[in-house]
Amino acid sequence: MVRELLRGDHSYSELRAALPMLSDKVLSDRLAQLAEAGVVERDRRPGWPPRVRYVLTPRDAASAPSSRPCGTGERKRQHETSGLRVAVRRALLTDRPA
């Protein structure tokens, strides 16, 4: 899901089409968890029908692998992306049954 959001903002139906292996419930639960954790912003646009777009927060988009300068080493890339990975893991592991 995060990989898709790294490419830009998406509607729920665009994410659903890009991630057919996820059920509707799992996709909506994950989006809610990531939004609550501050990894994803939910942008509701006015009008009818209501339109919602999901986008990575600027902080998390900046720590994405695609934003690193060309020629940096693997160790630096791992360091830059560790914050995004930690935020996503925390968001997905909260509220999970033991």
Rank of each mutant, 00 (worst) to 15 (best):
A18C: 05
A18R: 13
L19T: 08
L19D: 06
L19R: 14
P20A: 02
P20S: 00
P20F: 05
P20N: 01
M21D: 14
M21P: 03
M21I: 07
M21W: 14
L22M: 13
L22I: 02
L22S: 07
S23G: 00
S23E: 07
S23M: 03
D24T: 05
D24V: 02
D24L: 01
K25T: 12
V26R: 14
V26E: 13
V26D: 11
L27H: 11
L27E: 05
L27F: 10
L27K: 10
S28D: 01
S28V: 00
D29W: 13
D29G: 04
R30V: 05
L31N: 03
L31H: 02
L31P: 11
A32E: 05
A32D: 06
A32Y: 05
Q33H: 14
Q33N: 15
L34Q: 11
A35V: 10
A35G: 04
A35K: 07
E36G: 10
E36P: 11
E36I: 02
A37C: 10
A37G: 15
A37N: 14
G38L: 10
G38C: 10
G38F: 14
G38P: 05
V39L: 05
V39W: 10
V39R: 05
V40D: 04
E41Q: 08
E41C: 07
E41K: 00
R42E: 11
D43K: 13
D43M: 08
D43H: 11
D43P: 03
D43I: 11
R44D: 03
R44M: 06
R44A: 08
R45P: 00
R45F: 02
R45G: 02
R45L: 09
P46Q: 10
P46G: 08
G47T: 00
G47A: 01
G47V: 00
G47L: 00
G47E: 01
W48Q: 05
W48Y: 06
W48T: 01
W48D: 08
P49G: 07
P49I: 02
R51A: 03
R51T: 01
R51D: 02
R51Q: 05
V52W: 01
Y54R: 04
V55L: 15
V55Q: 15
V55D: 15
L56W: 15
L56T: 12
T57F: 10
T57W: 12
T57D: 10
T57S: 12
P58C: 09
P58D: 14
P58R: 12
R59L: 12
R59M: 10
R59E: 14
R59W: 09
R59K: 13
D60E: 13
D60W: 15
D60V: 07
D60G: 01
D60F: 15
A61I: 01
A61S: 13
A62P: 04
A62G: 06
A62T: 00
A62F: 08
A62R: 12
S63A: 11
S63G: 09
S63W: 08
